[in-house]
Design a protein around this nucleic acid. Structure first.
Length: 778
DNA sequence: GAGCTGTTCTTTTTT
DNA sequence: AGAACAGCTC
């Protein structure tokens, strides 16, 4: 025990942090100011409960909003206590992953109309399904192209019992139909995971499966610990309530009569920047109120210098002020540039100089309000050889061949998922040139049990019988339909057939045929598919079936260890289902296959010294939770920061966003605005937020480049503008098309007098000398 | 369904 | 400010 006491002293928690760690109220919310050591408190709390209060980690649920945060917590916990095993932290994860685990392992999902074999659908899939239902049922729904957004925003209102949609259409008639269809196809959306698990938790406590005074499985968490509560929405709060069992608890009712978990939640009401996708209320206070929680505060900031903190204090909306721990007070620079190009040029020079002075690139970040502002910065940094990284998540959905493959696999592990089967068959690129109507016919008739046929691993499912001349779509359908039967007994460790290899799956599904072996993109597609299958087999078989490619990293890998043991004795199909469910929630980081060197690790060999990383370019939203030595916040113009907004609430959120941005900086903060922003609706004047910062904290500088220098930039400016124009055209699908003898058709990326750069699907970017005439315009 | 007028939204993004 | 849509007329 005293050893642990020593350890805690080493952690040097301040008074307030210690109070939070030691607090044992039934419910406690910690108002953790920016940079106040929130995660440290969370880790210490968990360790304190575990090591000194003897609360088993298995009896704690630790909830985060993002996977990144979940990973950080387990990582830091493991760093402090290397003995902790993955099984002990099963209850640690995002709201959605914890809900999924509960539904799979502890809750009677059958009572809600699903089976234990249900799969998880991603939001696009749900939108597609909704569109199908709208078409089939002839529902009148407005703004169909914005349906995804509408469903997300109006779903909460639907659940809250509102009966009018925003546009007075049939959207609310859609929800029950959609839910019915999801039950029929045995799959759940992200929202369903939370909604259904909360409902089942409540039912369980209501007594229906608690007849003997205990829950059926005898488990409920002793502690529920939540990170970043201010980011949760109604659904998450509901889930939290159900998990704690606090619902319906009157102030007078003693806790013992109804076992309820203790709640410890940490958050910052000043950092609410996502309320536009949620409910609008401040969840921090809503939670505090609903749980009657004790509120503690962490007032001390350990991150930023005195000037930055004083400026940040002017934007504080809740609480009096943040106390600083630092006395240095370097001024905040405010620069005026002519336009985004000049600014980008200036930043490239400035960052190069900082780097020469010894500042590592990874300690420098450039923030902006809109994603599209990154284009100019990226182009200029590329030309000037500044290694950079733009934080945009690439998912497997963006790789067409994997997007299709996942659908094949999804139907293979869930034969009720008619939607996936139809999409597999009708896919324009990898499908069976089959109309939607025809595909539906095949899928519907194939759903009948007698069509199953004899399945075997050679992939002759259903072909032995009556239908020797099965057509392409039917053949593919039967392969998928026969998959569970053919592979269910694999790898159960009972002396049966071993787990399939990636090669075997490739053969089973006739993927060679589907990927069009004669096409130019075949080689690339095959490689991508094989890499994916190898990863999947390795994760599902509990052994490495193939070499692990470094550039195809799934974040899931870290979790592999935890799931291996669980899966012993369970069949391959089930493990594959788990794998696919987890990747829907967790996402997969993987390389698109085409090597664009500057996207990998900055720009190797483009002038940047290796070893100190890359400059990070990101939106203000993406910057939350991060810190950097030096921060450049660009485009601090009226109309951009704050972005032109309608309501008062929106303006308040913009202010919090600015607050989040400036508080990322530890030592140096530079704000800039343009005279000529070149964006519609953006004014060529500084943001009024700059006027809210006391002048004595600021050092203003106007960059007036001499005429000569500006002329030099003209050429570059035109070039970059042209490239961006083409890139946007490419995204819209209106780009100029180019044909090459070997690479086939591609799209024009850029050209000058000598060279032409083209992107070919499956081959990536290629440059040609115009003089050779290898390429022709179509 | 072309052509018109009027209305709404544009942005940020995680699971 | 401009795109994208809804709803109306013919």
């Amino acid at each position: 025990m005293w050893m642990e006491e020593e350890k805690r002293k080493q952690m040097q928690l301040n008074e307030c942090q210690r109070a939070a760690v030691l607090d044992e109220s039934p419910a406690c919310v910690v108002n953790a100011n920016v940079g106040s050591g929130k995660t440290a408190v969370l880790i210490e709390k968990i360790l304190y409960l575990h090591l000194e209060k003897n609360v088993p980690l298995e009896d704690m649920v630790v909830l985060t909003f993002t996977n990144k945060a979940a990973d950080e917590i387990t990582e830091r916990l493991l760093h402090r206590e290397p003995g902790i095993t993955p099984e002990q932290v099963q209850g640690f994860g995002t709201f959605h992953s914890v809900a999924l685990r509960l539904l799979k392992n502890r809750l009677p999902v059958e009572a809600a109309g699903w089976t234990k074999e249900f799969t998880v659908m991603d939001p696009d899939e749900e939108t597609d399904l909704a569109l199908d239902i709208i078409a089939e049922q002839g529902l009148k729904v407005k703004y169909k192209n914005r349906l995804k957004k509408r469903m997300e925003q109006e779903h909460q209102q639907y659940l809250a019992g509102k009966n009018e949609t925003r546009y007075k259409d049939d959207l609310f008639r859609l929800y029950p139909l959609l839910e019915e269809e999801k039950r029929r196809q045995n799959k759940m959306s992200f929202a369903d995971l939370l909604r259904v698990s909360a409902q089942l938790l409540r039912d369980g406590r209501g007594g229906s499966w608690e007849a003997d005074g205990r829950e059926r499985d005898g488990w409920h968490p002793e502690w529920v610990i939540v990170d970043e509560v201010q980011d949760s929405d109604r659904l998450q709060l509901d889930f939290l309530e159900a998990l704690c069992g606090a619902e319906g608890m009157e102030p007078g009712e003693e806790e013992e009569s109804r076992k309820s978990a203790k709640l410890f939640a940490v958050g910052d009401p000043n950092q609410v920047i996502y309320s536009w996708r949620g409910t609008g209320e401040n969840m921090f206070f809503l939670l505090k109120h609903r749980f009657g929680a004790k509120e503690l505060t962490l007032p001390m900031n350990y991150r930023s210098n005195a000037s930055i903190l004083e400026a940040a204090n002017r934007f504080l909306q809740f609480g009096n002020r943040i106390e600083g721990s630092r006395t240095e007070a370097g001024k905040i620079l405010v620069k005026n540039h002519y336009d985004p190009f000049q600014e980008a040029e200036y930043l490239a020079e400035r960052i190069r100089a900082l780097h020469k002075e010894g500042r590592p690139y990874h300690e420098i970040a450039v923030f902006y309000r809109l994603q599209r502002q990154s284009e100019i910065l990226a182009k200029v940094f590329e030309k000037r050889g500044i290694p950079y990284e733009i934080s945009v998540k690439k998912t497997l959905k963006e790789i067409p061949v994997l997007n299709w493959l996942v659908k094949v696999l999804r139907f293979s592990v869930n034969p009720s998922d008619a939607q996936m089967a139809v999409q597999v068959l009708t896919d324009p690129q990898y499908g069976e040139k089959c109309t939607k109507k025809k595909a539906k016919e095949i899928v519907c008739s194939g759903r009948m049990p007698e069509a199953k046929g004899e399945a075997d691993r050679s992939g002759n499912a259903g072909e032995a019988g009556e239908n020797k001349k099965a057509t392409g779509p039917e053949k593919r359908f039967r392969k998928m339909r026969g998959f569970p039967e053919a592979f269910s007994c694999c790898g159960t460790g009972e002396g049966d057939s071993p787990c399939p290899s990636a090669e075997e799956l490739f053969r089973y599904f006739d993927l060679r045929e589907a990927l069009h072996p004669a096409s130019e993109s075949y080689a690339g597609d095959e490689q991508t598919v094989m890499e994916f299958l190898r990863k999947m087999c390795a994760a599902c078989c509990g052994r490495d079936t193939g070499k692990t490619e470094k550039h195809m990293e799934m974040q899931q890998e870290q979790k592999k260890g935890a799931e291996q043991k669980d899966w012993e004795g369970e069949d391959f199909v089930k493990r594959m289902r788990e794998f696919l469910n987890n990747s829907a929630l967790y996402g997969m980081k993987m390389d698109a296959g085409e090597k664009t060197p500057d996207e990998e690790e900055g720009i190797p060999g483009a002038g940047g010294n290796a070893g100190d990383g890359t400059v990070k370019l990101m939106t203000l939203h993406a910057s939350k939770g991060l810190e950097f030595d030096t921060v450049f916040l660009t485009g601090v113009n009226q109309g951009l920061i704050p972005l032109r907004c309608q309501s008062f609430e929106q303006e308040e959120e913009e202010r919090r966003l600015f607050f989040v941005g400036i508080t990322r900086a530890k030592n140096e903060l530079e704000l800039s605005w343009y005279t000529s922003p070149g964006e519609p609706g953006v004014l060529g004047e500084p943001s009024r937020y700059l006027k809210m910062i006391p002048p004595y904290l600021l050092k203003r500088e106007d960059i007036r480049s001499e005429e000569e220098k500006r002329k030099g930039l003209q050429q570059m400016r035109r070039e970059v503008q042209e490239q961006i124009r083409r890139k946007r055209a490419a995204e819209k699908g209106t780009a100029e098309r180019i044909r090459h003898r070997k690479y086939g058709e591609g799209i024009l990326l850029s050209e000058d007098d000598m060279m032409i750069e083209v992107e070919f699907p499956g081959y990536g970017r290629k440059q040609f000398l115009k003089a050779f005439g290898e390429v022709e315009r179509i």
